[in-house]
């Protein structure tokens, strides 16, 4: 049986207490939310904290509050199942509820949290492997080694952004709160990430993600999440498209498209967005269809599919425009 390495277990009852324990132990410590990402990583020895700080006792990190009009706030320890079943979120943020509902499996969603999903480790077929397997390749850059085996001449790690909620939350302009030894801050979700397979977040050491803040719902925007994966359960996205369009009447006034599962962060499809702004986009309208298809073609270039996930990389890249177009069509009235 594959087992966890040994560690000391902490169970604080508040976010503040958790942050203090983390500060006391420094880099040897790690927060654990649902455990569905960290524990497999620990069993495979790609993460080996000796101090595990369980957040399950922090009541201040759980729950959904606020209103659609003012903006809903979700505690980081809210499970994905609770999020998916929350009536207020279902009404106000159907795209987020959909994105959450296609994460892994019902069992893992009962355990996994939104905070954990936001901070899901980047994934790679050379990294998500046992200690013994990784020994066979002399380890990789992301853990204990020097080489990125996806692109051995590359100076950087190409592990893949694999959270389903992140591309969407970046696109809709959600925000997160963090607390740390230096106090609290609130930043756009998009700013939580950077384009690096190893240092993929901008979260500071010891900092704890406490809440997700969703944008106010005012009827001017619509969002969608489209996921490409082999099976309709279990699988991480090999493409995860978050799309957001703001309208003034039929005219698109702002657009944000993020391509997940195809690089180390949710890549903005900037050119696609630019081509849509100022255009009249109505569902079923042939001209709009054409505009969307043409704009979506521009998602091909920024998509960085490499051979470190399921499916042929070349096909995933070719699928980006198809899935971007579909996500954009979802956003039309």
């Amino acid at each position: 049986m594959l087992r966890l390495p040994r560690f000391t277990y902490h169970r604080p009852t508040s976010a503040a207490e958790a942050v203090k324990i983390a500060a006391d132990h420094g880099p040897a410590s790690q927060y654990v939310a649902g455990g569905t990402d960290l524990y497999p990583n620990m069993k495979r020895r790609v993460q080996t904290p000796t101090e595990v700080i369980a957040l399950s006792g922090c009541a201040d990190l759980v729950g959904v509050s606020g209103s659609a009009a003012e903006g809903i706030t979700v505690g980081a320890m809210t499970t994905l199942t609770s999020l998916e079943k929350d009536p207020a979120l279902q009404a106000a943020h159907p795209a987020l509820v959909h994105a959450a509902s296609v994460i892994s499996t019902p069992l893992l969603r009962n355990m996994g949290t939104i905070g954990g999903n936001l901070l899901l480790d980047t994934r790679c077929n050379y990294y998500d492997q046992s200690h013994e397997w990784r020994e066979s390749i002399s380890f990789c850059m992301k853990c204990s080694g020097d080489t990125c085996w996806v692109a051995p001449s590359s100076p950087r790690c190409w592990a893949v952004q694999s959270s389903d909620t992140v591309p969407l939350l970046c696109a809709v302009g959600a925000e997160v709160s963090l607390i740390g030894p230096e106090g609290e801050r609130r930043i756009p979700v998009a700013d939580l990430y950077q384009d690096d397979g190893i240092a993929f977040t901008t979260k500071k050491p010891g900092e704890l993600l406490t809440h997700l803040h969703l944008p106010a719902v005012d009827g001017t925007w619509r969002a969608s999440y489209r996921k490409l994966r082999r099976r309709d359960t279990f699988d991480f996205p090999v493409l995860g498209i978050g799309a957001w369009l703001r309208f003034d009447g039929d005219v698109c006034t702002a657009a944000e498209i993020r391509i997940g599962g195809a690089g180390s962060y949710a890549i903005p499809a900037t050119k696609t967005a630019e081509l849509l702004i100022g255009e009249k986009l109505v569902a079923g309208d042939a001209a709009a269809e054409e505009r969307i298809t043409a704009a979506a073609q521009e998602a091909f270039k920024p998509t960085r599919a490499m051979d470190n996930t399921d499916h042929f990389a070349s096909w995933r890249k070719k699928m980006a425009p198809v899935f971007v177009a579909r996500a954009l069509r979802d956003c039309l009235g």
């Binding site: 998500d128 309709d232 399921d310």
Partner: peptide
């Protein structure tokens, strides 16, 4: 081209049909 490692020795990445398929 990578020392002959098995690409995906796991239940997750060795794909089998689920109840959904």
């Amino acid at each position: 081209n990578r020392f002959g490692v098995h690409k995906i020795p796991s239940m997750l990445e060795y794909k089998t049909p689920t109840s959904m398929e």
